[in-house]
């Protein structure tokens, strides 16, 4: 049996240990905020925090999530008021919105290690997250707003 914590709640899982965390979150826990975009670690739509760090849940088998603390977009803040979520709303970042949970989770992880990121830091951290609608310039602006750095 695999035990893990998801958004603060203890969970037990007994299925295929090779199943990626993404499908456990989506199909079993019905936490559908984390999205599928590629299944190969190429797009970032499935990004969650594993022990506080951004990870691609499509490439994280359940066995390696064992004993870990998982946070998804649904658990990032109590009322959707994480500074990044507020900045995202302020800049009207999303278009279709499908990639945005992954973008926000990736950005949240960036701000933990680099509270005042430069353009290069942002490019570096965010280039694994595709936005097919092309909201990149607003993503960059929103990260800077949340970090309190000049646009």
């Amino acid at each position: 049996m695999i035990r893990l914590k998801v958004n603060g709640a203890s969970k037990e899982y007994t299925g295929d240990p090779a199943m990626p965390l993404l499908w456990y979150l989506r199909d079993e826990l019905q936490l559908t905020g984390s999205k599928f975009g590629c299944g190969m670690g190429l797009c970032g739509a499935c990004t969650v925090h594993v022990n506080g760090e951004a990870a691609r849940s499509c490439l994280t088998p359940m066995q390696s999530a064992s004993g870990k603390t998982i946070v998804t977009i649904e658990g990032l803040s109590a009322n959707g008021d994480h500074p990044l979520q507020k900045a995202w709303e302020q800049h009207n970042v999303p278009q279709c919105g499908y990639c945005q949970a992954g973008q926000i989770m990736q950005a949240a992880s960036l701000l933990k290690t680099k509270p005042k990121p430069t353009d290069q830091d942002i490019d570096q951290a965010m280039q694994g997250n595709i936005c097919r609608c092309g909201t990149y310039q607003r993503i960059r602006a929103a990260i800077k707003t949340a970090a309190g750095v000049k646009a």
Partner: peptide
């Protein structure tokens, strides 16, 4: 602001991928 903005930023928007009814199979 878009009526879906808040839902999108908190992971609560429902897309085709997220549709669900009881007893469904994949």
């Amino acid at each position: 602001p878009s009526v879906d903005l808040k839902d999108i930023c908190t992971g609560h928007g429902t897309y085709g991928f997220d549709a669900r009814v009881p007893g469904m199979v994949y």
